[in-house]
Amino acid sequence: MSGFDDREKAQENKSAHDAELLFKATARRNRMLGEWVADEFLGLTGDARAEFAKEVVAADFDRPGDSDVVEFVMAKVSAAGGELSEARLRHKMNELLVVATAQISAQS
């Protein structure tokens, strides 16, 4: 029974670690996404660029999944008169998640 308990505890620890890694990587991805959008579509620099990136990170806490971030970014780009397709945005989000995950993993 002890061996089973040990395996169960190890699986719980791995699941918690994986969830923490995903949370950190997603937050980092959203920050990088905000920086990319600020550069490419909004023309923001300096503090305004950093503040926008923080807003993108905060937008992810509205509801589960990426739809809140997508809606926030699409609305901001549209309000600024820019054009960005949802497909391109989601593709960039996927690219940046890979980068963010690698960065977080390298730090561990």
Score class of each variant (00 low, 15 high):
S78C: 04
T101H: 01
E95N: 12
G65E: 10
E8D: 11
A19F: 09
E95G: 03
V56L: 02
V69M: 03
S85L: 03
A58Q: 13
E86F: 09
A19Y: 09
M93G: 03
V77R: 05
D5A: 15
L97R: 15
A87Y: 01
S15G: 12
M74K: 04
S15W: 08
D39N: 15
S78H: 11
K24T: 11
F4T: 10
R88V: 10
V37I: 15
H17S: 14
E95L: 11
M74A: 01
R29C: 08
R31L: 09
P64F: 15
G43A: 09
E86L: 06
A27F: 08
M32H: 06
E71V: 05
S2I: 12
A80H: 13
A100R: 01
D18Q: 12
I104M: 07
A80D: 04
V56Y: 01
A75D: 11
A58D: 12
K92L: 02
K9H: 13
A19L: 10
T101L: 08
E20Y: 06
E20G: 05
M93T: 05
R29I: 05
D5I: 13
V69E: 00
D68N: 15
A16S: 12
K76N: 03
R88K: 13
K92C: 02
E83T: 14
A38E: 08
T26N: 04
G3I: 04
D66N: 13
A50I: 09
S85N: 06
S2Y: 11
L89Q: 02
N30I: 02
L84R: 03
R49N: 14
A25H: 01
G65W: 07
A38I: 11
S2F: 09
E8M: 10
E95D: 15
F23Q: 11
F72R: 01
A16D: 12
G43K: 12
W36L: 12
A50N: 11
V77N: 02
G3K: 06
D68I: 00
V56W: 00
A53K: 03
A38T: 09
A50V: 06
R63T: 14
G3Q: 12
V57H: 00
E86V: 10
V57N: 03
R63H: 13
H91R: 12
D66E: 12
M74C: 01
L96K: 02
S105W: 01
K24R: 15
Q11I: 04
S105M: 13
M1Y: 02
F4L: 13
N13C: 10
N30R: 07
Q11N: 11
A38D: 04
D6P: 00
S67Q: 14
G65P: 01
R49G: 08
A27G: 07
E83S: 14
R7E: 10
A48H: 04
V57L: 05
D39K: 14
T45D: 14
R31S: 05
S67H: 11
V37S: 02
V77P: 00
M74E: 00
F72N: 02
S67T: 14
